[in-house]
Design a binder for these strands. Sequence first.
DNA 1: CTGGATCCAGCTCGATACTG
DNA 2: CAGTATCGAGCTGGATCCAG
Lengths: 126, 126
Amino acid sequence: MVTKQFSGSVEDADLRRADSLGREIFSDVANKWALLIIEAVGDGTLRFSELRDEVEGISHKMLTQNLRMLERNGLVEREVHPTVPPRVEYSLTEAGLALRVTIDGMCNWTRQYLGHIEESRRRFDA
Amino acid sequence: MVTKQFSGSVEDADLRRADSLGREIFSDVANKWALLIIEAVGDGTLRFSELRDEVEGISHKMLTQNLRMLERNGLVEREVHPTVPPRVEYSLTEAGLALRVTIDGMCNWTRQYLGHIEESRRRFDA
DNA sequence: CTGGATCCAGCTCGATACTG
DNA sequence: CAGTATCGAGCTGGATCCAG
């Protein structure tokens, strides 16, 4: 069972709940927009419109939707400046920054194996 | 631009192609089924039916579909034993094992921040 | 057992319009 | 500028059936 990955050595009573919660969180986080947004925010502070420009191809809707989800899970922090026009700034929390480290790993992996993968695809498609 | 994450310091001529390819690979890989499958295979060798049991909730279709994709990208190796009934075994390639390291990181992250996240959700939902 | 193909209900996502 | 709501086309993915 793959979900056991999430439970580690917690108390038996909490095991089932930890598994299903872990799986749910994993599903939230393991989607390309969430990962790209976290990567885009980085250790900086970006406005909504900056993020939309930064994350290539994301729609207005997907951006808000994922930002809400990430905020709910405590990965990004949302700071509203009550000016007019409104100014909203997003940054990563400690949890977000920690996750970002592993996402960086995925990006490095992609760079590193780009050639392998391209080659593998050519062979497979033939 | 987030996609610059993928291109690193390659030749200018290849930069655009590397970016779009990197993004495409990232989209392939950054989905929950792909990640869970890679995690399930681990450093072992699993049959199709074992994988279906191991990856909780995955359908026949999603499993084959993702396995084909992972094979095409050279992350998993598919070995067919021409017996009857057929026996097909999957294992990770070097690239797959390398990616698995970062996925392990995500799983650890999930375990580590489970409490934070649960708490954050409670606050947010209120 | 593995896996391809088909069908189609349901969801996703982009476009658009509207608010503060 | 940031965000919500709505609508509909199109894709996703589960169920099912067939084949090697």
